[in-house]
Computed example of a mutant assay.
Amino acid sequence: MSSHIFSPGLQQALDLVGIFVFALSGGLLAVRKNMDIFGICVLAEATALGGGVMRDLVIGATPVAAFSNLGYFSTPLAAGLVVFFLHPEVERINRAVQTLDAAGLGLFCVTGTIKAHDYGLGFVASVALGMLTAAGGGVIRDLLAMEPPSLLRWDREIYAVPALVGATVVALLLAAGRLTGLNASAAALVAFTIRMLALRYGWRAPRAWHRNGSRTSEE
């Protein structure tokens, strides 16, 4: 199967790092929303695991990995506790958290696309689920916090687009029968690089053409 391009030990280690960093972002939003420790842990879990859970439910991979692997479920709880006790320090290293978050985005768009393909989905569906794996948790996080999802807001740097590009590269390699650990890592690096450039230069997706310029940005 294509999912075996990485060794199981390396795959799990990378997954846990990505899950931990995603969980930190969920916990930090909970702190900003003045939630208690339960809310912090819920948002940490939702952010870290939400995309993978939705992917697994769509493709019928049950029980979903998030609940069949204790490490996947407990890691966001650990991140939530880190935020609960040390959130001022975590906020101060927010740039590093964003960098690791971008790395997690790249990793999960790759692994999500591969898993969808292994379950028999076609090119477009595999790309869509790769993007969902990477960005879906953030949508759930924002909805639980009663915020407009960040990836749908024009005033935020592009997030789903880098995942979409990385997932597309992987799907093309799968279709050509050329996917290897090396070029899968390169696809993750592409998504990571686009996300980091977006943060550096404020890249945003275009809005509708011929939009009434007299309206305010909040409309």
Rank of each mutant, 00 (worst) to 15 (best):
Q12S: 13
Q12M: 15
A13Q: 14
A13G: 14
D15C: 01
L16M: 07
L16A: 04
F20M: 04
F20V: 03
F22W: 12
S25F: 01
G26H: 01
G27R: 09
V31G: 05
V31W: 01
N34R: 14
N34D: 11
D36G: 11
I37D: 04
I40W: 00
C41G: 03
C41R: 00
L43I: 05
L43W: 12
E45S: 12
A46N: 13
A46Y: 06
L49R: 00
L49I: 12
L49W: 04
G50P: 05
G50K: 09
M54I: 15
M54C: 11
D56M: 10
D56V: 11
L57P: 09
V58G: 02
I59H: 07
I59T: 06
G60F: 11
T62G: 11
T62M: 10
T62I: 12
P63G: 06
V64D: 11
V64C: 14
A66M: 06
F67T: 07
S68E: 08
S68W: 00
L70Q: 12
Y72K: 00
S74G: 13
S74K: 09
L77D: 01
A78D: 04
G80H: 06
V83L: 14
V83R: 05
F84G: 03
F85D: 05
H87L: 01
P88T: 02
E89R: 13
V90F: 07
R92T: 01
I93K: 03
A96T: 09
V97W: 04
Q98K: 01
L100K: 04
A102H: 07
A103Q: 04
G104S: 08
F108N: 03
I114N: 03
I114Q: 00
H117T: 10
G122F: 12
F123P: 08
